[in-house]
Structure formats: structure tokens, C-alpha cells
Computed example of a mutant assay.
Amino acid sequence: MKIAFAGKGGSGKTTLSALFTRHLAATGLPVVAIDADINQHLGAALGASPDQLRALPPLGSHLTEIKDLLRGSNPRIASAEQMVKTTPPGRGSRLLDLSPDNPVHRRFGLPVAGATLMLTGPFAEDDLGVACYHSKVGAVELYLNHLVDGPDEYVVVDMTAGADSFASGLFTRFDVTFLVAEPTLRGVSVYHQYAEYARDYDVTIRVVGNKVEGPEDVEFLREHVGDALSVCLGRSAFVRAMEKGHHPGLEELEDDNAKALAWMRDAVDAVPKDWERFTRQGVEFHLRNARAWADAATGADLSAQVDPDFVMGPLALAAR
């Protein structure tokens, strides 16, 4: 399952991304954690050292390499230069799974906290005034477009704050989006913005209340987000320790918060996988991007990259 953590800056989404990653990885199941936030803190939250993070090649700085790998022998994609962040896979594309043989994980992944960590990379000084962070996050979109995840396999993505993921079809690449909201007006405003943008795309959004101190906070969240509120986590000494750079064992997490994490996993596992919808939405946003800017940028008709007989999923991976 592909899972996004979104929310406003300071809501605790990175901390909850790390905590949920650790919760899943503690079961021994395959878990990938991707830091797609412009502020790259997920690795530190998982316990990676500064030296390890400096040595880890960022996805966003190796787009051409990733595109060459993923296009494989697909005859519809002439070159990496004609492959954009929304380019969908087709027959001949290199599809990925969560096995140890995944070449993207081997090249860009770091084992940490029982998971495989990958980074998009920070917004560099050379990018100022000439690039946008969406180009780096495009590497994550390409990875997700080509990944066939199976039962009891998880990819957790810490998204950039706010609603920036709506600059492309990235927001449709997830089985579940956890919107982390504090019990404040600013905390719930991002949910309303996210829900409005995603309204027509059959996107599953679950609100996770964070830093909740009592029934009044729960009532406030329910008043403003309704049935979208799924679970709440209270203020936590365990989380405070994480935020100070410590990494206590999960057995020290407060019982109520541990139960909240277990509920979140149950909520994810209950969402049915729909590969036909995944394929259809990917094609829709690719065609939209092609018309809006990508055809002009590449000098090619990128609608020709769509393989009309291809459906992403386990059958496509087996055939490949």
C-alpha cells in the first residue's frame, strides 16, 4: 500500500511519518520511507546519522538515471529527455517491486529502523530562481508510477507541507492519505483545501488529529472535519524525545498512541487496491501535463507515450 502523510508545516506529519514507518517495520514487513518534503527531516526522525544522510544519493538529483532505468525497452519512450514526471509505464517499461532486487532501492536506499529510506533531496542553492521543488518530487512520482506493491508491503511518503502535491497527479498515487491536523483553525484549513482539490478524484483521505490534549480538542476537530476524523494522538513524551533526536524503543510509546498507530494500519489494509483506477488516473494527468507544458518543453507529442492496452499491477509485473 502507498501511504502519504500531508499537513501544514509544524503539524507533526514528519514525526508521524517516522513513527508509522517504525510501527510497520517492527512487524518485519517490507517498508519504504520516502522524504518528499522540501525540509528533509524524515531520515533524522528515523535515526539515520548526519554522515549516512550526506552519503545517500538524493532521487531528485539523478532524474535522468532514474528515467533511463524505468523506461527500459518501452518503444513509446524515445529517450530520458522525453520522459516527464507523469510518463506512465507501458509494455517494456521497467516495473519495480519491493524485493531485494529493486534497483532503485539498491542505488538510492538506506536501511534504517527496519525500513528502506530514500530522499528527494533538499532545495539547493543552485536551484534558487531557476527551478522549483516539484521537479525533484517528480522522481517520487515516477517511482510510484512504476511500483507494484503487494499485500503487506508499504511505502510511506512524507509530503511537502500544504497542498503543493496538487501541482501534478502525485496526490492520486496513494491508497490512503493521512492528513495530520492540529486542533486549530490553521490545522484544519489544509484539510479543507486538500479535500476540495481531491474531491473529483476518488482519493481516500483520513484525518489524524495530533497534539490533542482532551475531549474539547477532539470535538473541535470533529466539528471542522466531520467523519474524516479517524484517530487522534495525544501529546507524547515519546514523541518529544524523538523531536530532540532520541530514538526510544516502540515499547515505550504510550498505550493510546500505540493503539492509534495500529488503527491506522488497519485502516490502510482495509482499502481495496484498484490498479485500473491507478492506471487511468496516471494517464489522465499525463495527458493533461502534456497539453499544458510537457509537449512544448520536450518538442514531442507525449500523448503517444500512453500504451492503451497496458494496465499497471501484478499481472503486468508477472508478464514483464
Rank of each mutant, 00 (worst) to 15 (best):
V104Q: 03
K259H: 13
A25L: 02
A297N: 02
R280D: 12
A270N: 00
P314A: 10
D35R: 03
V271R: 10
P111L: 13
N210P: 07
A267D: 15
Q193V: 11
L98W: 00
T279G: 08
E196A: 15
S168I: 05
K8Y: 03
L63R: 13
P89K: 07
D101W: 01
T116V: 14
E276D: 11
A80W: 06
D269L: 11
L19W: 07
S93W: 06
H286N: 12
I66V: 12
T87Y: 00
Q281W: 09
P30A: 13
D175Y: 02
P103N: 11
Y197A: 02
M159H: 13
G114H: 06
L29S: 13
R106I: 03
G109N: 02
L179G: 01
A131G: 08
D256E: 15
S73W: 05
K67F: 00
A167W: 00
S189V: 01
P30V: 10
D126A: 12
S79G: 10
D126W: 00
Q305R: 10
D256N: 14
R277E: 07
G60D: 05
R222H: 12
L229I: 05
A260I: 10
L96Y: 01
A294Q: 11
D127L: 02
T87W: 08
T184I: 11
V268M: 05
V306C: 13
A319D: 14
G129V: 03
T279S: 14
L59D: 12
V207E: 08
R235E: 15
L253H: 07
H246P: 00
P103E: 12
A292F: 06
V155C: 11
L315S: 15
A4M: 06
G282N: 11
R288D: 03
A290R: 01
V311E: 04
V306A: 09
P272N: 12
R54Q: 14
P215V: 07
G92L: 00
L110R: 08
A55M: 04
K273H: 10
P57Y: 01
G245T: 11
Q193Y: 01
A161I: 06
V155Y: 01
R265Q: 15
T87F: 07
F310P: 07
V231M: 04
